[in-house]
Write a protein that binds this DNA or RNA. Structure first.
Length: 493
RNA sequence: GGGCCCGUAGCUCAGCCCGGUAGAGCAGGCGGCUCUUAACCGCAAGAUCAGGGGUUCGAAUCCCCUCGGGCCCGCCA
């Protein structure tokens, strides 16, 4: 297989040699005044089939797709960020030598620039009639098959650069993701939130029950951990008086990959002083309404994106955590159940619940199995049991509950928010209840954070959104790998 | 971590059940064609069948191990 590959590469190298031998640069520095292919297509579409417009001259540049040689004329597909345009090259325009060297030197996959005027072929295809074409960068490796592209999931991840130029769907999806994060930033910035960047490395990784990655600092001569959440640092910024902050960036959890989890993912958290979780619910409703529109506009051909734009319209459904869970399970007084009974109920769902499993875990499993799959439309689930979160404030009127909601859509979570706990004594107690012996598997106790609260943190609402999952939901992706450019892959052997 | 499945030419796939020594399309080479668009027509070429071991007269095919990947479960939110 290596021989075959090197044969193809050698052939392309030979063509590169032809360019150099003729005294032209094989890798020139620039190609002037390039317009998007869509500009040429629009100009050409205004023409009658068979007509051209010699009054206009355009330069385009991009990667060659199929080359259809036709004797003394040829059609070349040129793809750029905007789409594609057909190049129509003829011997009578390029000259015998120019036409021949074009065909001798160029391959599908090459980066080329072309100058010409708009033309519409007899079949009606908007095209550029080529007066000049030149190689801007030789592709020494052949592109994948023009019709199917890269199908192998592993190849698509390991060679994402190839996946992107070979698959317009992949390109469109990642472009949509970029527009979504831009939309998220714009929305929050316009709402008065300040974007910040906090540290990734610290001795203690807290804010979530997750196993951290551990690394080592030569300078400190000590172990450091990669953050598993943004929460504690951002709350310290509230103590510092920044009042409305958000961060959008990677967090790291040392766990396996599956269709909705990856060890390195993008989290957005925002904190809003003097607001509570109901204020935050309103903000989330407006935010998702806006983002769903962004995705739908970016992906007109993706049904899931269009469907999301239809359904993410305020007001979203609102249900109570305990009531919904009790109804689905057919039980009453769930919060008063002794822990042993909770474990039995959780075990009945098939979840592996050990004899010392905490109530939080039981609730998580019960909700996960009985309720989550039923939440199809955008739905806020309100007022979780206190044990499920050590960082949220007790509900102002409902004993045993905290002021927390999560947003669900099509069975998975798209956001998590609460009225943030700002009582340092209470925080210290809850931390100690949750923190086990092992800081690498349990919710880590962070004394610096508690000391920060002792300086006084304003009442605040906080929100966390898993950006990858948000992008999945709004772009119709079924695997998180379809919205992460470079998911972790094992070392190539 | 457990179970199931997959790995054949640069790319997309067939062949594997039922063992007889690998086949197509695209891309590439040569030739033809001045409106094609998955262009078309002709000719020639291209493969340690993921890697290693075993069974067998004979292995892409059956068995075992290793590597890589996918799906489900677990872990995780």
């Amino acid at each position: 297989m290596a021989e075959e590959e090197s044969r193809l590469i050698a052939e392309r190298r030979r063509k590169l040699g032809l360019v150099r031998a003729s005294g032209r640069s094989a890798y020139p520095y620039r190609f002037g005044d390039v317009v998007a292919t869509g500009t040429v297509a629009a100009a050409a579409r205004a023409l009658e089939p068979g007509a051209d417009d010699v009054g206009q001259t355009f330069s385009v540049a991009g990667r060659l797709g199929a080359i259809r040689q036709h004797g003394k004329s040829a059609f070349l597909d040129l793809n750029d960020r905007d789409g594609s345009i057909q190049l129509f090259a003829r011997v009578d325009e390029l000259g015998e030598a120019g036409y021949q060297s074009m065909l001798d030197e160029l391959d599908p996959g090459d980066i080329v620039g072309a100058v010409g005027h708009p033309v519409r072929t007899k079949r009606g295809e908007p095209s550029l009639r080529v007066k000049h074409i030149e190689l801007l960068a030789k592709a020494l490796r052949p592109p994948p098959e023009k019709w199917h592209g890269l199908q192998d999931e592993e190849a698509r991840i390991r060679r994402r650069h190839v996946d992107l130029f070979a698959s317009s769907e992949s390109r469109a999806r990642f472009r949509a993701r970029s527009l979504l994060t831009a939309g998220l930033r714009t929305f929050l910035t316009e709402a008065g939130f300040l974007e910040v960047e906090t540290g990734v490395l610290s001795p203690v990784a807290s804010g979530a029950a997750a196993r951290p990655f551990v690394t080592r600092s030569h300078y400190l001569d000590d172990e450091l951990r990669l953050r598993v959440a943004l929460e504690l640092q951002l709350k310290r910024l509230l103590v510092g008086g920044l009042e409305r902050v958000f961060e959008l960036g990677p967090v790291f959890r040392n766990e396996d990959l599956d269709s909705t989890h990856t060890p390195e993912f993008t989290m957005m958290e925002c904190y809003w002083a003097y607001a509570d979780y109901l204020d935050m619910r309103g903000l989330v409703e407006r935010l998702y309404g806006r983002l769903a529109e962004v995705a739908a506009a970016a992906l007109p051909d993706v049904p899931a994106a269009q469907a999301a734009a239809e359904v993410f319209r305020a007001p979203f459904d609102v249900v109570d955590y305990v009531e919904t869970l009790e109804r689905r399970m057919g039980v009453d007084h769930l919060l008063e159940k002794p822990i042993e009974e909770l474990r039995t109920l959780a075990r009945a769902t098939g979840a592996p619940i050990t004899g010392d499993a905490p109530a939080a875990k039981c609730f998580d499993k019960l909700f996960d199995r009985h309720v989550e799959p039923t939440l199809i439309r955008p739905t806020f689930v309100m007022d979780y049991p206190t044990v499920t979160s050590p960082l949220a404030k007790a509900h102002r009127s409902r004993p045993g509950r905290i002021e927390r909601f999560e947003l669900f859509y099509r069975g998975f979570e798209l956001g998590n928010a609460y009225s943030e706990l700002n009582d340092p004594e209470e925080q210290r107690r809850r931390f100690l209840e949750q923190a086990g012996d092992d800081p690498d598997t349990n919710f880590a106790y962070d004394e610096e954070f508690v000391e920060a609260l002792e300086h006084g943190m304003p009442p605040a609402a906080g929100l966390g959104i898993g950006v990858d999952r948000m992008a999945m939901a709004l772009t119709g992706a079924t695997s998180i790998k379809d919205v992460v450019l470079f998911p972790p892959a094992r070392r190539r052997t």
